[in-house]
Computed example of a mutant assay.
Amino acid sequence: MARAPVLRHGPVVPQVESLLRERLRSGEWRPGQRLPNEVRLAAELGVGRSSVREAVRLLARDGLLDVRHGAGTFVADPPDEGAGVVGVIDVGRLVRRARLLEVYEVRRALEVEAARLAAHRVRPEDVERLRAGLRRRRELDGGDAAAFVTADLEFHRSVVELSGNALLLSLFTAVRPVLFEALTDMVRHEEDLPDVADAHTDLLAALERGDEAAAVAATVDNLESVLSVIRAAVGER
């Protein structure tokens, strides 16, 4: 068995999806060919079966794989040449944005409440940890998209964790792979993403002061500005 690839620190599912996508792109598996089963792929990649299952689901959603229950997972046939590569990419991106819109609406609700709770529970040592996370986010801005998004989501995860609410943290953890995938795509390809650095700074300052209202306002300012881009992309007003 080939040695498992070395995965980076961070969400596993997007990395597994990227590895499988590259193997499809390279022609390792041809259209109509059956992929190794979930157990074998998980062993090859050194990850859990659930990570492989979710990555396969995402690739099937994008039309690259065909999951046939009871038969296995097969490489999907390529689209008709007349469809045009650009059209296929645009439709796939639109579907991802529509999916992200729903997730982002959930994210907004849970992070607003998390910020409110964190403002009452944050300690000086927590503020220093958040400040270090924000500094790392700032340093990575403009560089590798995946690394920047990872730092951004880690900062937000820290705020949710400081809420002291285990259910909010579980919900954030559940949507994080979707956020990572879609936000990385946006950072790489969207030319007019809003600059939310000030909103992050405002959130940290509000938490340090224990100012609930300001923490909520900074969170809304941050997430609503990105939500407006996503809504515009899927044609929702």
Rank of each mutant, 00 (worst) to 15 (best):
V178R: 01
S163P: 01
V196M: 10
A55Q: 04
S158D: 13
V12R: 03
L167G: 09
H189K: 12
V149Q: 01
M1Q: 10
E28Q: 05
H69L: 15
Q15P: 01
A4F: 12
A145P: 02
E191H: 12
P14V: 09
G48S: 11
A147I: 04
V196D: 09
R108W: 15
I230N: 00
P31Q: 12
P11G: 06
S228L: 10
L130H: 03
R3A: 11
G46E: 01
S26L: 11
V86A: 15
L45R: 02
R61N: 06
V47M: 15
V159H: 09
T173N: 14
R176E: 13
V106W: 08
N37C: 10
W29S: 04
W29P: 00
G133T: 10
A132R: 15
R93G: 13
A146P: 03
D202V: 03
R68F: 04
H156C: 12
R138S: 14
S228F: 07
L193A: 13
V91T: 08
D198F: 09
P79K: 15
A4M: 04
D195Q: 09
R57K: 13
V103R: 03
V234T: 12
F180N: 04
R96K: 14
V149E: 02
F180M: 12
S225G: 04
E17K: 11
G92V: 03
A119V: 05
L227R: 12
R23T: 05
E111D: 07
R231K: 14
V95G: 08
A119I: 02
R40I: 14
R40W: 13
L193Y: 13
S228Q: 14
D144M: 05
E28S: 08
L130K: 01
R237I: 12
E154H: 14
R188D: 09
A76C: 02
L227V: 10
V39I: 07
F74H: 04
R136G: 04
E22P: 02
W29C: 02
A233G: 13
A218Y: 03
P5K: 03
E22T: 02
E236T: 11
Q15H: 08
S26N: 12
G87H: 13
A118P: 00
L58Y: 01
G27P: 01
R121A: 12
